Amino acid sequence: MAAQQVENTNVASQDLLITPKALKQEMPLSEKAAQTVLEGRQVINDILDGKDKRLFIVVGPCSIHDIEAAKDYAQRLKKLADEVSDTLYLVMRVYFEKPRTTIGWKGLINDPHMDDSFNIEKGLHLGRRLLLDIAEMGLPVATEALDPIAPQYLQDTISWSAIGARTTESQTHREMSSGLSMAIGFKNGTDGSLEVATNALKSASHPHSFLGINQEGQAAIIRTRGNAYGHVVLRGGGGKPNYDSVSITLCEQALEKAGVRKAIMVDCSHANSSKDPAIQPLVMQDITHQIIEGNRSIIGLMVESHINWGNQPIPENLADLQYGVSVTDACIDWETTEKAVREMRDKLKDPLASRSEA
C-alpha cells in the first residue's frame, strides 16, 4: 500500500523565524528603557494595591500601522502625562495584534506591509524598535497579548497587558497570563458576561505548566508561578454598555463573590461607546462623577485615541492613507484627548488624594 501523507496536508510552507534571544541581541533594552518598563509595572501594581491613589489610563491608537505617527503621538502623550502625573498615570496603548471575528488585517506584527505578504519577522523588528523608542522617551506602554509566541519577543518592553474579550475564555491565554511579568486586564465577554473574566482571574493567579518556546526558540514546557495582578476590564457587550454605577456595583459584587481582586478598569470604547468615538469622553465624565461620589473600585480607564478623528479603510494604494487616522476602530482626536484628560485630572485631583482603599 502506497504511503500517504498524514500530516501538514494543509500547510503551504514553514519559514524559520528569528529567535527571541537573537532579536533582543539586535535590539537590546537600554538601562533607561528598562527603568521606564519597571517603573510602569510598579506604579500600576501600587495602584491595584491601593498604595498609589492615582488612576492609570491606557490611551492611544486602536492599532499601530504607521511608525512615525505612533512616535508623534507618543511625544505628545509624554508631555500630557507629565502635566497630569499628580493625579493620572498615562500609559500609551501600543497594539500590534488585532483579533478578528472572521478575516481582516491582523496588525503590524503579522502584516507590516498591509498587503497580505505576512512578513512577520519584519513586523517583530518594527514593533520592538517602536517599543524601545517609546520606552526611551520615559513613557510606559500597554498592549494586548494575543499570540502566545510573541511575548517572548516583546514583553520585556511592556508595562501592562490586556487579554481581549475574544480570548479571555481561552485556556491558552489564561496560562500565558499566569507567567507574564506585568499586571493583566481581562475583558468581560463579547456578550457582556462577567463570569469568563472572573474565571480567568482565578485561573491566571495560579501556577500553570504548558507548551511554549524559550529564548532560543526551542519548544519548551513553561512552568509559571501565577500572576497576582490580574483585574477585570469592563468593555460592554451584547449591545449594551456596562460602565454605569449599577453595572459597576454588580461587577464589584461578582468579583467579591469570586474571591478575586475588586479592582475595575473601564474601557471607554467598544460596546461602552457603541463604537462611536464621540461617546468616549462622556464615559470618562461618568466615571469621574462616580469617583467623586465615592466609588473606590475603579482603578483605570482605556481610551482609543489618535492624532486625528475617526477611522479609515486600508486603501489599495497605501500612499492614500490619511496621517494619524486609525485603520481599525474609530478614535477620538488629539485635541479631544487632551481636553478630556485635563478635565478629568482637574476634577479628580482632590477626590483621588483622599480616596480610601476598597
Results as ranks from 00 to 15, higher is better:
K106T: 10
L126M: 12
A340M: 07
S193P: 03
D15L: 08
M182P: 01
N199G: 02
L88N: 10
A70W: 03
E304N: 12
G226I: 06
I18D: 03
T87A: 12
V6S: 00
H65Q: 08
S181R: 08
E169M: 06
Y243W: 14
S181N: 11
S177Y: 00
G226Y: 03
S193R: 10
A33S: 05
I184V: 15
M92D: 03
L255C: 00
K262N: 05
E293M: 01
I149E: 13
A353V: 05
G310W: 14
D333V: 14
E195Y: 06
P151T: 02
V283D: 10
T19V: 08
H289W: 02
K32M: 01
R345T: 08
G237V: 09
A135I: 01
A70C: 09
M137D: 03
R355E: 00
R128E: 04
I279M: 14
V196M: 14
A33C: 06
D111K: 03
Q75V: 13
I287R: 07
Y243P: 12
L301T: 13
D320W: 02
P61E: 14
E31P: 07
M182Y: 11
S63T: 05
E343L: 08
N311T: 08
I103M: 06
V260F: 01
I299D: 02
Y89I: 10
Y153M: 05
L180M: 14
S203G: 08
C62V: 05
L17V: 14
L124D: 00
K71S: 11
T9F: 04
G310H: 13
N110Q: 09
L154S: 12
T143Y: 03
P99M: 13
A330W: 04
P351M: 08
N188H: 05
G239N: 06
L194I: 15
K122F: 04
G138M: 03
I221R: 01
T190Q: 14
T224D: 07
W160L: 11
R166Y: 06
I213R: 11
S274G: 12
N272R: 09
G164P: 06
D147Q: 13
S177Q: 00
A150I: 15
L90C: 10
D66C: 06
Q25Y: 01
Q14M: 14
A219I: 14
I213S: 10
Y95H: 13
D116Y: 04
D191V: 09
F118W: 03
V260Q: 04
Y95E: 12
I307M: 10
P28A: 05
P28H: 00
A12W: 01
N8L: 11
R342T: 01
D66M: 10
I47E: 09
N119F: 01
Q14C: 14
G238N: 05
V196Y: 06
T288C: 12
V58A: 13
L211F: 15
V37K: 09
S178K: 05
N110I: 09
D329V: 08
L88H: 02
D346F: 07
P281F: 07
S326W: 04
H206G: 04
G192P: 11
S30K: 00
